[in-house]
């Protein structure tokens, strides 16, 4: 049976800034969840999840050595660091925001 769960159940995350670009590392909580992340958490879906915060392209990179995916969100930080007028000027909370995403998994995969 397919169930809908938050990404938080499957992964951990850490995000940060370089200029106006934010990156989010999404790390599988267990190695067997990595294929689910690969299938479910596409760059397109991440861009949609962040709506107006992801103004530019979103690129996904794979790090199978640590069962992780890395998302790079361009034009995402309101000008970045000392130019941003947002509360989260360094994009530190983007990782938390990503973990809110809903994903669909087969119960047998968990």
């Amino acid at each position: 049976m397919v169930v809908k769960i938050r990404l938080k159940e499957l992964a951990r995350s850490r995000s940060g800034d370089k200029g106006n670009t934010c990156n989010i590392g999404l790390i599988s909580r267990k190695p067997q969840y990595y294929p689910i992340l690969l299938r479910e958490v596409t760059a397109e879906k991440v861009k949609k999840h962040f709506g107006d915060f992801a103004r530019g392209e979103v690129v996904r990179y794979e790090m199978p050595n640590i069962d992780a995916l890395n998302y790079v969100l361009y034009e995402a930080l309101n000008g970045g660091a000392a130019s941003s007028i947002r509360s989260d000027n360094l994009g530190k909370c983007f990782g938390s925001a990503l973990l809110k995403m809903w994903v669909e998994v087969e119960e047998s995969e968990l």
Binding site: K18, T21, I27, Y61, M63, A68, N70
Partner: peptide
């Protein structure tokens, strides 16, 4: 786990 999180921190293309 704690080390892996830092490995991916503020990285663009990890390769």
């Amino acid at each position: 786990e704690t080390v892996a999180e830092q490995l991916i921190y503020e990285v663009h293309d990890p390769a």
